[in-house]
Simulated assay, not measured.
Amino acid sequence: MGQVIASATASLDGFIARRDHGVDELFGWYDGGDVVVENAGDLPPFRLTEASAAYWLAWRESLGALVVGRELFDLTDGWGGTHPLGVPFVLLTHRPVTGSAALGSPDLVVMHEGVAEAVAAAQELAGDKVVGVAAGTIATQVLRAGLLDAVNVDLVPVVLGEGRPYFTDGAPVALGDPTTVVPGRGVTHLSFPVRPGG
Rank of each mutant, 00 (worst) to 15 (best):
D128I: 03
W29C: 03
E124L: 13
V97N: 00
G86M: 02
V156R: 04
Y55D: 15
L92C: 09
W59D: 13
V151L: 15
E117C: 06
D149L: 09
R47V: 08
A135F: 04
V156A: 10
V153W: 11
D34F: 02
A145G: 12
W56A: 10
V159C: 10
T93C: 00
Q141T: 02
A102P: 07
P106A: 06
N39M: 10
Y30N: 03
V67G: 13
E38A: 15
A145M: 02
D107P: 00
L75D: 07
E25I: 03
D154P: 04
P165Q: 05
V159Y: 12
V158K: 10
A122K: 11
A121C: 09
G22C: 05
V23D: 06
T49L: 04
G22H: 04
V67T: 14
P84Q: 00
A65W: 01
Y30S: 03
G99F: 03
V109R: 07
G146W: 00
R144E: 03
S62H: 10
W56L: 13
P44K: 07
R144P: 08
P165K: 01
E61D: 15
W56K: 11
G146V: 06
V68P: 00
V119H: 12
D24M: 07
A116H: 11
E61R: 15
A102D: 02
S105Y: 12
L125F: 12
G80D: 08
A145P: 05
R95L: 04
L143Q: 13
V68T: 12
Y30I: 03
R70C: 01
G22S: 14
H94K: 08
G22P: 06
A121K: 13
A134G: 12
V67L: 13
V35R: 03
W56T: 14
A126K: 04
A139Q: 09
L57I: 14
A54E: 14
F73R: 01
V109G: 05
G78S: 10
L155W: 09
Y30H: 14
G146N: 08
L26I: 05
R164C: 00
A102C: 06
D20I: 02
V109F: 04
V67C: 05
A51P: 09
P165D: 02
Y30M: 04
E162Y: 03
W59C: 05
D154R: 14
D149Q: 08
L103W: 10
L63N: 13
A51F: 11
E113P: 03
A134K: 04
Y30Q: 12
A58E: 15
P84A: 09
T137H: 13
A135K: 01
V153T: 11
L66V: 12
R47Q: 12
L85N: 05
I138L: 07
A134I: 02
T76E: 02
F46P: 08
H21W: 13
E71T: 14
Y30W: 07
P88D: 05
E124S: 14
A126W: 13
A101P: 01
V87K: 15
V36W: 00
